[in-house]
Design a protein around this nucleic acid. Sequence first.
DNA 1: GGTAAAACGATATAATGTACCAACTTTGTC
DNA 2: GACAAAGTTGGTACATTATATCGTTTTACC
Lengths: 164, 164
Amino acid sequence: MISNARSAYQVHDHQRCIDAALNRARQCCAAANARLTPIRETVLLLIWKSHKPLGAYSIVEQLPALTGKRIQPPSVYRAIEFLLELRLIHRIPSLNAFIGCPFPGSEHSDVFMVCRQCGSAAEVSADNLNQLIAETTHKAGFQLESQTVEVSGLCLACNPETPH
Amino acid sequence: MISNARSAYQVHDHQRCIDAALNRARQCCAAANARLTPIRETVLLLIWKSHKPLGAYSIVEQLPALTGKRIQPPSVYRAIEFLLELRLIHRIPSLNAFIGCPFPGSEHSDVFMVCRQCGSAAEVSADNLNQLIAETTHKAGFQLESQTVEVSGLCLACNPETPH
DNA sequence: GGTAAAACGATATAATGTACCAACTTTGTC
DNA sequence: GACAAAGTTGGTACATTATATCGTTTTACC
């Protein structure tokens, strides 16, 4: 099992998250022979600025401060589409929002834990869980191709019962 | 494990699905002291007319044929909200669409199998899967409150490798 | 029958996402 | 370098999904 929950939900040097994410992105793009253009990189940066899923129109609003000019929704959605395809970000359907993938490149399925209080989201990837989902749906006659698990509740930091 | 996959994906007497669903709905409403008004019942009927998740605006379009008058989006969304609260239907976030719940009243978490080819969706509820999701997220420090699992792939009927 | 709560009607508008086409940039080839 | 092809961006308009607001009607209950 791998997860970024500890870092996502607790105080940490977030600049390191951002730097690491951008470095991984550059590597992924180089490997895929894809171009991480300024718009794409800035959109990825904005998404990584926090551990809260970010909506497309929030990105549209925040881009001018970083680029000096307004960028229209279609361009933002194109950047998002690019980042999704390279699996550098994920879409969280119930929020219509996007979050950086902490471990791109590694084969994994999406399990997101969204805190209903602070809004942060972390990702976890667990082989045995993926396997059980595959088995369960297979028993129901379904040939699984992709999956998204969304969990809502309280994160480490927001749960009063957590010692920390 | 309980699932409606067999009936959802294969030829069957769908009128029985509809009738059963409406009967369950009446029981649920009576038990909850809630009113299954004509609009609400018609919306539920429309959602149950097929095993494909139905969008709110499809309902808006189809209602006049059943009720004789146009019903505006807010009224439809209010009916949907009511049905969601009573757990008579589910929302499938990735589709912005709604599907009838085949086993309301019984405590369960949502696992949806959406066929990418025919668009039908079935639901499965498996205790061991729910438990593993709870365990996995708990290990990551998360206190789970609700979950939605969406699986995409090929259903029984659309999978050429399925003998049937 | 009077009253409060619940439900509905109707208009307007917010939020999210896409189609389309023109212009510009990069890449590869000669 | 000149050129063509592919990829990327700019910009307008529009489609789709969802909600805010307020006035009216219906229902439940005493």
